[in-house]
């Protein structure tokens, strides 16, 4: 599965758009329809998070989405069913954002095998640094699912070298230090981060955290990212349309289309 993701990044000369949703937010059917709206609006890769009770790496918008999805009864198994339905309908590469305890309780090997079976290409575990990830990396590789790790402006060269060695698929590069969220500006130190990631690893970099506008998307692709990950700016449209699925779908499409267009119209830096 991860080969498909790597080929997509290798063979595309413009920026890629990877929107993020919490699986099951605000409920199973709406979540499925929202992901469909993202594909129609130009998503190249879909990123989905399994809702967790204590998402410490996420800001208030994603926290609220996790709470909605949990309230709607989204268990890990139900989230896998949603992924399977998505895979059947759209066949876009899919990336999972996880918190470690959900994988641990599901059973590490069983989790990655199930992820592969529903069409998942890569998994990032938000609270699992490389040193703690031995068993997870082995299970991911055995299942053919890419283990993804994070790089940021505060990553030392030694840590980036470990990401290059162990990571597959892409490097999740943090554009803004902190938790996920919507911000006015992406950080100034971006060019240096992408340069360091490019120097240490052959993996493409996708940029996330704090990216919410078409300008941000252009900015990170110009700085060297293969694409941009947008979460909170899209997820908040769900919060803004609580009881009206059609309005939420229209708002999602309207929010995502300009972001996709900005990515697709920006030429990537040659590697």
């Amino acid at each position: 599965m991860s080969a498909r993701l790597e080929a997509l990044m290798r063979d595309t000369d413009h920026g890629l758009f990877m929107p993020f949703l919490v699986a099951g937010d605000p409920d199973f059917e709406t979540s499925l329809a929202l992901a469909g709206a993202l594909v129609e609006s130009g998503a190249d890769i879909l990123e989905l998070g399994f809702p967790f009770s204590d998402p410490v790496a996420d800001g208030p918008i994603i926290q609220a989405a996790d709470a909605r999805a949990l309230a709607a009864g989204t268990t890990p198994e139900r989230a896998f069913e949603l992924l399977a339905a998505l895979h059947a309908r759209h066949d876009r590469p899919m990336v999972l954002l996880m918190y470690f305890n959900l994988i641990l309780q599901y059973g590490v090997e069983r989790f990655y095998a199930r992820a592969r079976d529903v069409g998942v290409d890569a998994v990032l575990v938000a609270d699992l640094p490389i040193e703690m990830a031995g068993k997870v990396v082995a299970a991911a590789n055995a299942a053919g699912v890419a283990p993804v790790f994070i790089a940021s402006a505060v990553s030392t060269d030694a840590r980036l070298a470990r990401v290059a060695e162990v990571g597959r698929g892409f490097v999740y590069t943090v554009a803004h230090l902190g938790v996920t969220g919507v911000r006015d500006e992406v950080d100034g130190g971006l060019d240096a981060v992408f340069a360091r990631v490019a120097r240490t690893t052959r993996l493409p970099a996708l940029a996330g955290f704090g990216i919410s506008t078409p300008q941000h998307v252009r900015r990170v692709v110009e700085a060297g990212a293969a694409g941009a990950i947008v979460g909170s700016a899209l997820v908040r449209t769900i919060e803004e349309h609580p009881h009206d699925r059609d309005a939420a779908l229209a708002a999602m499409y309207a929010a995502a289309a300009p972001l996709a267009e900005a990515a697709h119209n920006t030429t990537r830096k040659p590697c």
Binding site: V56, A57, P129, E131, I150, V154, R159, L177
Partner: peptide, 9 residues
């Protein structure tokens, strides 16, 4: 230590 990579340094 099961935390975000950002906290490791």
């Amino acid at each position: 230590y099961y935390v975000s990579e950002l906290l490791l340094p």
